[in-house]
Every structure is written in structure tokens, then in C-alpha cells.
Design a protein around this nucleic acid. Structure first.
Lengths: 229, 229
DNA sequence: TCGGAAGTGAGAACACCACTCTCCCATTTC
DNA sequence: GAAATGGGAGAGTGGTGTTCTCACTTCCGA
């Protein structure tokens, strides 16, 4: 945890996730694809464990056993457990961003696009079992752990969320230029929407009665007015 | 962590914090005041350590040494480290609520009262060193840890926040009946305000540039519009 | 004053887990 | 064929929360 300067990804293609580049770059001399496969096996094993246990409280040993790899191999690709969780989180966010862009593409009006993004993002971050697609991973434990990561490694988390942040910023910008909302600063407005939508699950945790919990729609309504629509 | 049913505080006076009753009730037969003193020494020691280290990553041993008490005594009053942190959090929230009510009392207009509460609450939850009173404890580490507690013990955290929640609900209710805001459900509106204000520090963590971070005023502005003022 | 019960202190011991290190074997490379 | 590199297996280390043991003190009723 000392001066861990980010290694420059000299040969990376820009579409590659950042953490993947970082993890793989350590063994760049060897076959790159093989290394990526190994990394992916760790990730798959961790996802499975999270799905089964419903929490991120798995042990490294379990990941090793599940992935049929060695402890040594694990620490060759990940500096520690946090980095593995960070990778999972980054993976999740990347997948979310792709899905969100699909949802947004179905709308044309700026406000409708923003709304679609917010609603879908809410579903991603507070996955009810009913809305979760079959075969998809359970994102809730990762969502929950992300707050701890945000305290310990804010820069990393910020970078991981970036694809979603960028999309939200674009949409808020669109809506602002179309005059359908009126905000002083699009960046701050986007940041607020992001936080409210992504972490409303947190507030809901503190409400006992399920009937009283905030839905995606209600959260969006609040944001909508906050944006001065 | 098995079936830990909350013991009914049969003889408690209602102004006593819940956790204190719980911790003390285990040795109710003995002198109550002495037990409370001992509990308080643990709390003081923990607060000191948090202030010095700027984090909740102290060890139980450090609390023992600092408070000049025994490990056994610690586990006699607290079921574990989480319960100690919970107690600190509950203490903080209680103190906040008192301070917030003072701030609110200086205003008469419903909306001004709500605003005063929101601004002050924001200062409590994201304590800049400049606004922190001399001699007061550093609340940020506890704020940060509270998100973990909320994941692990939502009911406890909910109970701890309750004094603040109640105040917010009252104020939102006042403003709603005065027609200065228009919300469908006061409970949900209050919950939203609470979450946005109390945890905006979290979103700010993900913003590198200090100039871009959301201030109490800006957060309040957003809430204000969200409330349909 | 005596004696037992409860309370308390000191710290050893245990459990768990992230992380490191060493050994050894397989595959590749020259 | 020898050397080097990579990787698997697993013992070992360190830190920390938690429990347990035992001896000492205090309190209270007989």
C-alpha cells in the first residue's frame, strides 16, 4: 500500500478495462491471452461465490479452490483481496454502462433518455430478484461493498464508475441544452443524480416496512424536480 | 450472532439511549452508576483513538490499554467491536439531534427551519476542520464506518439515526402542512432528504477536484427543488 | 468476623484470514 | 540436454477479534 504508481499501459488498446491492463501488464512478456484467461477464472470463481453466499465475505482460499488455481497465482495477478473486489466492481459498472446505453438508445427525447438511464441504473444498483435477469450475477453484495471501497480507494472507485458517470453527464448535458431542465452546473447535477439513484438502496436499508421503501420511480421523481424540470 | 433478542428495558427511563440500557442491564443488580462510568470510559478511549488516528481502525487492545480496563470487562459490556462502534454512532447521532434542534429553534418559518436543519446536518456528517468545534470529536471516521454498520446491522443503525429522522420528519411535515413544499408522502420525502444530506460526503469522495465538491448549500438547493418548493 | 458469591484484572489461548515464502515439478528455450 | 522461467501445493507468519482460565478483590449477609 505504499507508492503504488499506476503503470502506464503503453501497449493497451483503449477499449480494454483499466484494471485488466494493470493486472495483465505484470506478465506482459508471457502470452497475454493466457494471463487474461487466468484472471477471468479468478473473477468467475469470485462471482460464483458471491452469488452463492450473497455476500463478499468469501476467503481467498475459497477463490483458489473454486478456480482450481494457486494462491501464488492469485497474488501474481491481484495485489490483494481489495483489488479483486475492485475488479469485480469495475466489471459490473462496465456491463451496466453498456446496458444503460441500450436502454437510453430506445428513447429520443432528452428527458426521457435521462429518465430511462436513471430507472435502469436504479434497477442495477438495487437488484430485486424479480428484475434480475436469469443467469446474471447478483450485484447487490458488490454494491454494498463498493461503499467500503469508496472509503479506502476513492480514486479507484471513481475510475470504475466513470463509464456510468460519463453517460449521466452526457444525458444531463443534453437535457440542459434542450432547456428541459435548468441546472446551474451540469457536473454537479449529474453527480447528485448519480449518488441518489445509485445509493438509494442504502437509505432503503434503513426502512423496515417494505411498502415504504423508495422505488425507482419515486427516486426519479425527486431527482426530476431537483433538476428543475 | 445467534438469536440475540433485544432485552426489554423494563425499568429504563425513556430518555436513556437504548444501547446504554442494553449494555448496563446485564449488571443491573450491581451499582448502576459504576457500570455506566465503566462503559463511558470505553467510549471515551475509543473516541480519543479515533481522533488521533482519524479512522476506526483501532484495536480492542488499544481501547483496553487506553481505558485502563480489562479485555474481559470490555466483552462484559459490549458483545463485540461492532457494538462499540454502534454505541459511538448512536452517541454521535444523539448529540447531533440536540444540536440540530437548537439550530432549528432559531428559525420560525417552516422552510427556514427545514433548511437550517439540512445545512447543519450536512456539517455534522461532513465535518470540515474549519467548522468543527474545538474539543469536539472527529465524526468523519464514524460517519464512514456507519455505512458498513448499516449493511451489517440495519435495524440498529436505523434506531440510532431515529432522533435525526424524527426531527426531519417533523420539519418536512410542518413545511408540507404550511404548503411551502408539495410532496406526496412526507415520510419518503424526509427519508430522501436525510439520505442526500447525510451521505453527500460519500459522493464527494468520488470527486477529485475540491472546487467541484458539493457544498451544504448546493445539496440543500437540490433537495429544495426536489421537495417541490 | 467469617465465608461465599459475584466482580474484576491480567493475559494466555484460540480462530480466522489475508498474505508471504519455500520447495518442487513441468514446460519452454537455447 | 541443461538452464531458466512459470506455476502448483501448501506450510508458515502476523495481526486481530473473541473466548477462556485463574487468581485476586470487593461486597454482603450470617
Amino acid at each position: 500500500m505504499d507508492s503504488e504508481s499506476v503503470e502506464a499501459p503503453a501497449t493497451g488498446d483503449a477499449k480494454e478495462p483499466a484494471w485488466r491492463q494493470r493486472a495483465v501488464s505484470r506478465s506482459l512478456n508471457a502470452a497475454r491471452s493466457r494471463a487474461e484467461q487466468r484472471v477471468q477464472r479468478f473473477l468467475d470463481a469470485a462471482f460464483e461465490l458471491i452469488d452463492e453466499k450473497g455476500t463478499t465475505d468469501f476467503t481467498i482460499q475459497e477463490v483458489i479452490d473454486r478456480s482450481k488455481q494457486s494462491l501464488r497465482g492469485f497474488y501474481q495477478y491481484f495485489h490483494g483481496k481489495d483489488e479483486l473486489l475492485l475488479a469485480l466492481f469495475e466489471d459490473s459498472m462496465l456491463e451496466s454502462a453498456i446496458d444503460l446505453r441500450e436502454a437510453v438508445a430506445e428513447e429520443t427525447e432528452p428527458l426521457a433518455r435521462l429518465r430511462a438511464c436513471a430507472i435502469r441504473l436504479h434497477e442495477w444498483c438495487e437488484p430485486a430478484d424479480s428484475t434480475r435477469k436469469r443467469g446474471a450475477h447478483n450485484r447487490r453484495p458488490i454494491s454494498e461493498f463498493s461503499v467500503q471501497l469508496a472509503v479506502a480507494h476513492p480514486e479507484r472507485v471513481k475510475a470504475a464508475i466513470e463509464p456510468v458517470s460519463r453517460l449521466l453527464l452526457e444525458l444531463v448535458g443534453e437535457a440542459a441544452t434542450a432547456k428541459t431542465i435548468s441546472v446551474a452546473d451540469t457536473r454537479q447535477a449529474a453527480a447528485l443524480v448519480q449518488q441518489i439513484v445509485m445509493y438509494s438502496w442504502f437509505g432503503n436499508r434503513l426502512i423496515s416496512d417494505p411498502k415504504m421503501r423508495l422505488t425507482a420511480e419515486q427516486t426519479w421523481e425527486f431527482c426530476l424536480r431537483g433538476l428543475g424540470a
